[in-house]
Design a protein around this nucleic acid. Structure first.
Lengths: 78, 78
DNA sequence: TTTCATTTGTCCGTATGTATT
DNA sequence: AAATACATACGGACAAATGAA
């Protein structure tokens, strides 16, 4: 599902919201890896840095944990 | 010769330009192997991915042919 | 056959500078 | 001035291909 450029939400917040919903719904389980930055940027048709920002939002919220060289994971016991 | 960070050209294009000049001058002959990615990154003092990009520029131009596990070579009959 | 070093190719998170709005 | 997006670059890590021992 591509981003909606008519929306008030900037793309990186739309992507973050979509991922947050998948985590809170249980589709993405604790410990499970989120889609990679490259995957997200291709899937949503946005630049790499935009996907990076989206993941950073979730990390700042404490929903995810990122490990350099490994990926971004749904936080356990969060 | 390290890259010039004051130049308008980004490092990966500087490296590509240097290699292109060596090919067109005949210093690097058709069929001859170019310096490896690791060699270039050390010689120019840049990251690996930067050397990869430089070599990709030449390959996209049709000047070189890359073969995984073997190296990058000046294209014959190019 | 297995092991090892080398090489290309790719990916991760991160940072900086710049252009656009 | 500020927010957003993109290009470029960094170090580190891993996979796959190749050839030699």
């Amino acid at each position: 599902m591509p981003v909606d450029y008519d929306s008030d939400l900037p793309p990186y917040l739309q992507i973050a919201a979509g991922l947050r919903a998948r985590i809170e719904s249980g589709e993405l389980q604790p410990g499970q890896r989120l889609p990679s930055i490259s995957h997200l940027s291709q899937e949503y048709g946005v630049a790499r840095v935009t996907a990076v920002k989206a993941l950073k939002v979730l990390a700042d919220e404490g929903l995810t944990v990122t490990r350099p060289g490994w990926g971004t994971f749904v936080r356990r016991s969060g």
